[in-house]
């Protein structure tokens, strides 16, 4: 019997082909989970496969440690002193138990962030300066859009000069769309 990949409890009776970016893969689900996946889950929020990433990362790390003959027995496996979250719960689910867990498990989280995120330093809004941030964000967004329109207009001129009319039409549509959004 093949178990449902979602609830890992009931027998999988449905196979769903799913596409995430360029990768197509099949998942095997029980009928209950298939109904939920099909109708709701996918349209709600993407669930990033963080635990599978974590798993491969941990394999990489232990492989590296072995090849470099590092002494094992570092304290990565200790529980979070604040919330009691165990390292195995974290690595199994990808979920942390409190803010302090980020410090407790930082040896694992730092390399993970380099893989899954666009950087390791927060550049967004902060508590207490929300309204300020929201305002400057709007200005930033405006200037971004204005900047892109300018760039596209330059490309449009080039396309017309080169008699690439199809490309020019595409650019014109993009500019019109951006200008529309700019004035919203």
């Amino acid at each position: 019997m093949v178990l449902c990949e979602r609830c890992e409890n009931k027998e999988a009776t449905v196979t769903i082909s799913r596409i995430t970016n360029e990768k197509k893969h099949k998942i095997h689900l029980c009928s209950d989970c298939a109904a939920e996946e099909g109708y709701f889950a996918w349209s709600f929020e993407p669930q990033f496969p963080v635990h599978s990433l974590l798993k491969s990362l941990l394999n990489d790390m232990s492989g590296k440690a072995a090849s470099q003959r590092l002494t094992p027995g570092r304290t990565v496996s200790s529980d979070c002193p604040n919330c009691g979250r165990s390292y195995s719960d974290f690595s199994r689910t990808g979920f942390l138990g409190c803010g302090q867990c980020y410090e407790t498990f930082s040896d694992t989280i730092k390399p993970l962030l380099r893989r899954i995120q666009g950087g390791t330093v927060h550049r967004g809004s902060r508590p207490g300066e929300q309204s300020e941030a929201a305002r400057s964000d709007i200005r930033q967004q405006m200037s971004d859009t204005k900047h892109r329109i300018k760039k596209l207009k330059r490309q449009l001129k080039e396309a017309v000069d080169m008699e690439e009319y199809e490309r020019a039409a595409e650019l014109r549509d993009m500019i019109a769309q951006l200008e529309g959004e700019d004035h919203e």
């Binding site: 963080v50 942390l96 962030l113 899954i116 995120q117 927060h122 967004g124 902060r126």
Partner: peptide
């Protein structure tokens, strides 16, 4: 829960920072 370096602290590290999807 906010950290100067990591931004808003979320349950899953995939949401860390802005916490925005």
């Amino acid at each position: 829960a906010f950290d100067e370096q990591l931004g808003y602290l979320t349950t899953c590290p995939t949401n860390l920072g802005t916490g925005m999807r």
